[in-house]
Design a protein around this nucleic acid. Structure first.
Lengths: 113, 113
DNA sequence: CGGAATCCGCGCGGATACTG
DNA sequence: CAGTATCCGCGCGGATTCCG
């Protein structure tokens, strides 16, 4: 966490690009944050991540699963029930989601004052 | 910083959306991070933020200026010289850029191992 | 219920050329 | 030097419909 301050500007930019490649799009951070709270089903996730369409949710979830940030489990009931949960690796993004959320709160105060 | 842990899931998602609205696109975080190091001219910024096109740099800088995160100063020399620097408000994003960069480093280790 | 398939518009984003 | 203007393709992202 502290070693980042030893980076040159260029190294830091590269590191930021690496993160942004994984978290690109406007929904992934929200999905990660949700699943950091608790595992959820598809429909529950769609409700929590306010405003996302079904197609985008499927797409983003697939991306996140490929990158090993979340895990997908299918329960073969009728009708089927699909469960998503964060992986230990994905959970390493929790601090990031909190910093982003904290800044969002301050920003809202700022623009509404 | 700590109060974010008191948020409900929904409040946190809203806060994240608020941040993402300002930092959307794949370049803004990098630009902010750069200008947190030091003020820079347009051409210098274009070199540091690796891979960005001139059009996108102009566009992103305009967005960031509108949101009061950066400041633009024109020196009327010939040829003109335009200087960008972070505002105090924009500097409040520094922790965010560091957390993102730190995770990017860990992620690179992860995927290259 | 949890998607996949399809259609479609809009805007991102690159390349190039041009301007003060 | 620091942009703006133009062209253009691609993919985001919503809406709707269909499927197992």
């Amino acid at each position: 966490m502290e070693d980042v301050k030893l980076l040159t500007c260029n190294e830091k930019i590269r590191a930021i690009h690496d993160t942004m490649d994984v978290l690109s799009g406007k929904w992934k951070v929200s999905i990660i944050a949700c699943l950091c709270y608790k595992g959820m089903r598809y429909s529950e996730l769609k409700r929590e991540v306010n405003g996302i369409s079904g197609k985008m949710l499927s797409r983003e979830l697939k991306d996140l699963e490929i990158n090993k940030l979340i895990e997908r489990t299918v329960e073969h009931t009728k009708p089927v029930c699909v469960y998503y949960k964060i992986t230990p690796y994905g959970a390493s993004l929790k601090e990031l989601t909190e910093v982003i959320a904290t800044w969002g709160l301050k920003h809202r105060e700022m623009i509404t004052q």
